[in-house]
């Protein structure tokens, strides 16, 4: 493992300008340590998603560098890039399951980064990996759905399959992009519990975009506030008052955040 004081995720002067000139991110500097549960809050359109999707390079950044566990993902290519991505799991707002494939096959998708392409093509997953996938499904209480087609599950179940997929991937980092936005409150809590479980039991670093302040308060250890592509707040959850949230969501009309990054 890397040196103990090296951050898991490190963003250095990261900026993103879209082709149409919109500023997505501006001068982001951020360190996230191993084992942290970070929630990113902000209005929609503030750049939360862009921030998250830059970390595993689903989107390229325009400037700056992002370092994952000591390796720069911004300069990585081909196989190197895929190997770094293998260490970063992602949970999506719309679950992004392959709807017509079985739950098992969806969960196994988490393992593709570990195999040469030809093996996955012929579905030659190792027995242990299939077992691992099944165990992951048991962790999220969906063992009985293992051969069901994904499109026959409810939204909450689909998101839990996605969590099992990430668990099977066995990453060091989990990025969760609005994991609960398409779910009802109760299912949302269940999904967040599962994420917390990955964080606490497996020591995975979690970075989650959340819309709901309530959920953020309940599950986050650290809060990062984003507004107009910039970090406007960064602090421990326990030290964060309601006023700070109000400020983040008020688009800077209220008093200024206590701590700038």
């Amino acid at each position: 493992m890397a040196a103990t004081n090296q951050p898991m995720i490190q963003l250095k002067n990261v900026g993103k300008i879209y082709d149409n000139g919109t500023v997505g991110l501006k001068d982001i500097n951020l360190n996230i340590d191993k084992g942290e549960f970070v929630v990113v809050v902000g209005l929609s359109g503030a750049g939360k998603s862009t921030l998250l999707r830059s970390i595993n390079r689903l989107q390229d950044v325009s400037e700056g560098d992002i370092i994952i566990d000591g390796k720069s993902i911004t300069s990585a290519k081909g196989k190197d890039l895929r190997e770094i991505r293998r260490d970063i799991g992602m949970i999506f707002q719309s679950f992004n399951l392959v709807k017509r494939s079985s739950v098992l096959r969806n969960v196994l998708t988490g393992r593709v980064g570990y195999y040469p392409t030809w093996k996955t093509t012929f579905n030659l997953f190792a027995k242990e990996d299939k077992q691992k996938a099944y165990e992951a499904l048991q962790r999220v209480d969906l063992a009985d759905k293992v051969y069901t087609r994904a499109d026959q599950l409810s939204g909450g179940q689909q998101q839990r399959v996605a969590i099992a997929r990430v668990l099977t991937q066995n990453p060091k980092i989990i990025l969760a992009d609005e994991p609960t936005a398409s779910l009802d409150p109760q299912t949302s809590r269940r999904v967040m519990h599962d994420l917390k479980m990955l964080n606490e039991e497996y020591g995975m670093t979690v970075v989650a975009n959340l819309h709901s302040v309530e959920l953020a308060k309940e599950f986050g250890d650290r809060v990062i506030g984003v507004r107009a592509g910039q970090i406007v707040y960064d602090g421990k959850m326990s030290e964060t008052s309601q006023a700070v949230f109000d400020d983040i969501y008020n688009g800077g009309n209220g008093k200024k955040g206590e701590e700038d990054a």
């Binding site: 077992q131 165990e135 048991q138 293992v146 051969y147 066995n170 039991e201």
Partner: peptide
């Protein structure tokens, strides 16, 4: 690597033909 909890984990059942 993962410090699995004491939850009993079952074997993967065979796929129905």
């Amino acid at each position: 690597m993962p410090k699995s909890k004491e939850q009993h984990l079952a074997e993967l059942p065979k796929k129905k033909f």
